[in-house]
């Protein structure tokens, strides 16, 4: 008996170990190097300067006025996109839930933006949609007699949020549709007989049923949106000023534009801390829905 119970514990651990070991390596090796770089003088432009600098890189990165902006932008980007995609995703899912002719065609059109690669998404919106002279949006604005908006100049963060929402809303929507399809029909009919309003049904029947689906969407979106890079890199380059710079882009900027690897590494450590804070709250808030 003894050996069998030991075997019971050994095999699961053995099966788990490749994933844990590779991820640990994937995390620890860069982390160790980043920690080391963050404590030394390491600028690609002036390689003759070396040596241990203690917390100087951290101080430099935090006192950079862009730092606070970047942290705020990261959170605004994350919060707005998650909110927009969940709210509109729910609304559209409720809209197309009941059968109508061509329902699967509508589904296919709706999900398409999710498969578009972020670089193409960004270029498509930057040029063909948002260009202040030739873009489609400018034409729509002119049609209604409005002054065309210079999206990337005047509303840079909002423009990025728009692109991200376009990409992720279909994802949210399709998860919600699938979840809606398992709603209890009899319960809904019973509530109709009792004269429940649409809002009451939404609040007390649909929303509780979809709690888990909403959790799944929030979870996956947070994972991907905390470190948005391609969309910013391709469109606004973080600007104008720091208006659309998030933490990931700021680190990139330090490392590959200013060539200051030391400071960028200190920034990476902050990004890791931020990721863990968000993960901590995420588990507290949504973790119970994930069982």
């Amino acid at each position: 008996m003894q050996s069998s119970s030991a075997g019971n514990r050994f095999v699961p651990r053995l099966l788990l170990s490749p994933a844990v070991a590779t991820l640990l390596l994937w995390m620890l090796v860069p982390l160790g190097m980043t920690l080391y770089f963050s404590a030394i003088r390491y600028n690609l432009m002036s390689p003759e300067l070396t040596g241990f600098v203690g917390w100087a890189n951290y101080e430099f990165f935090v006192t950079n006025p862009a730092f606070t902006d970047a942290v705020l932008n990261t959170l605004v980007l994350l919060g707005s996109t998650v909110f927009i995609t969940v709210a509109f995703g729910l609304a559209i899912a409720m809209l197309i839930n009941d059968p109508f002719p061509g329902q699967s065609f509508v589904r296919i059109l709706l999900i398409s933006p999710f498969f578009v690669m972020p670089t193409v998404n960004a270029l498509l919106w930057k040029h063909m949609m948002m260009n202040p002279i030739y873009g489609v949006l400018a034409q729509v604005w002119t049609f209604f007699g409005l002054e065309p908006v210079n999206w990337l100049q005047d509303l840079p963060l909002f423009s990025v949020i728009l692109m991200l929402s376009w990409q992720w809303m279909p994802f949210a929507c399709l998860i919600f549709i699938t979840s809606l399809q398992s709603m209890d029909r009899e319960q809904l009919e019973a509530s109709d007989l009792d004269g429940a309003t649409y809002l009451q049904k939404f609040r007390y029947l649909y929303l509780p049923h979809m709690a888990r689906a909403i959790t799944v969407v929030i979870m996956i979106e947070v994972i991907f949106l905390l470190s948005v890079f391609a969309e910013i890199f391709t469109t606004t380059n973080g600007g104008p000023g720091t208006q659309s710079t998030n933490l990931a882009y700021l680190i990139y900027n330090e490392a590959l534009v200013n060539f200051d690897v030391g400071s960028a590494s200190a920034g990476a450590m902050f990004a890791i801390i931020l990721a863990n804070i968000v993960a901590f709250f995420l588990i507290r808030i949504v973790g119970k829905n994930l069982d």
Partner: peptide, 25 residues
């Protein structure tokens, strides 16, 4: 649960933070 959350948290870190180490490796 903790291992799972730890795994997911590694995915939340910006890839750019690991770029220089990975590039050098």
């Amino acid at each position: 649960k903790n291992i799972l959350m730890w795994m997911l948290s590694t995915k939340m870190m910006p890839a750019v933070g690991a770029l220089i180490p990975i590039y050098l490796l």
